[in-house]
């Protein structure tokens, strides 16, 4: 420590410290997911982290840079990616997603700080288009024996089609697992799911999206430590619930209520951990609100009127792509500066 005269500028935490704290915040979600879906999710997380680290290391070596794997950011991307995949997602496909996530989503643009979009979502969008059947195969939660037995699709041989899950699920002591997420049930069959279930996460869904409450609490940890822009999360959630509220008010029989909207699908995970990606979001005071609003609005429009039942991923990617524009048009005037004559 060194003593200095004023001004006493506070040292902002380094990238590495922030990133490590985000990983801490993600750990409870990972743990809950492993508890809920079992050993398959553990393997999914491990494969994703290992592949991401290897890919980043390899690309750094190929391009003659010093490896940047020590700054934890790649671990965040890897964990987030794994949390957005279905629990029984074939591990080889998860490796493909991880490779695309780091190689295309991050390193191709120049590494941390230069990515245009959230790398985890780039990886997920790739496998969504590449393996549409596997990424929409859901498995029941809290199965007995989940810590001893893999979900059979997880261990599919690389490059081969995973066997259908229906038979395996039918052999389990369950009554009426529909094989669909709460969102899909609502959208295609107008079957609502209890909000309490959605809050605590006793539903089918992607590995880490089920418990809205847990994600929210982990988000609060980051906000308290001032390591996350709460305004983005707030505007995503506000606009999403407002938009769905309008539709719910118009016709309660088809459209879900705002609470369902907030707690179902990947909205909470997306709003807390992905929309707030520091690199791919705008930095201007107005920009963050507009950016969040765009995500919230587009998500609901895709959910209600698109072909897919979930729209958070595409909404965030779209907003990521438009964030330079949002930043540019919302530049605050420098205090005391006058408008240059003849412009604007």
């Amino acid at each position: 420590m060194e003593l200095r005269a004023s001004p006493h500028l506070r040292v902002s935490p380094s990238v590495e410290v922030i990133m490590r704290n985000v990983v801490y915040a993600l750990l409870p979600i990972c743990a809950f997911s492993v508890y809920q879906f079992g050993i398959s999710v553990f393997a999914l997380l491990a494969v994703s982290v290992i592949t991401c680290l290897l890919t980043e290391n390899l690309i750094c070596r190929l391009s003659g840079k010093t490896p940047t794997t020590g700054d934890w950011s790649v671990v965040i991307s890897a964990l987030l990616l794994a949390l957005t995949l279905p629990p029984g997602f074939p591990l080889w496909m998860a490796a493909v997603a991880s490779f695309v996530c780091v190689a295309v989503g991050k390193m191709l643009f120049g590494g941390l700080g230069f990515n245009v979009m959230n790398p985890a979502l780039v990886g997920r969008a790739f496998v969504q288009a590449a393996f549409p059947a596997s990424i929409t195969s859901w498995t029941p939660y809290m199965l007995p024996g989940r810590f001893a037995e893999f979900i059979p699709t997880s261990l599919a041989t690389p490059f081969l089609r995973p066997a259908p899950l229906a038979e395996w699920i039918a052999g389990k002591p369950l009554d009426g697992f529909s094989g669909a997420t709460p969102l899909a049930l609502m959208k295609f069959d107008h079957v609502p799911t209890d909000s309490i279930q959605l809050l605590i996460g006793t539903t089918a869904g992607s590995a880490g999206e089920t418990s809205a409450l847990l994600i929210f609490i982990c988000g609060i940890y980051l906000v308290v430590r001032k390591m996350m822009d709460w305004r983005i999360t707030a505007s995503v959630l506000l606009v999403a619930s407002a938009t769905s509220g309008i539709f719910y008010w118009m016709d309660q029989s088809i459209y879900p209520d705002p609470l369902f909207t907030l707690c179902s699908g990947g909205l909470m995970l997306g709003a807390v951990f992905m929309a707030t990606d520091m690199v791919a979001s705008p930095v201007t005071p107005w920009g963050v609100w507009i950016y969040g609003a765009l995500i919230g609005f587009v998500t609901i429009i895709i959910r209600l009127f698109g072909g897919l039942s979930e729209g958070v991923m595409y909404a965030i990617l779209l907003a990521n792509a438009s964030s330079p524009l949002i930043s540019a048009v919302t530049q605050p005037r420098i205090y005391g500066a006058t408008k240059p004559k003849g412009t604007e």
Partner: peptide, 17 residues
């Protein structure tokens, strides 16, 4: 070219591919 259990990567026949 492959066994029938080959998993096609649909993204390649879609526009992004």
């Amino acid at each position: 070219l492959f066994a029938p259990s080959f998993q096609p990567w649909s993204i390649f026949v879609l526009p992004p591919g």
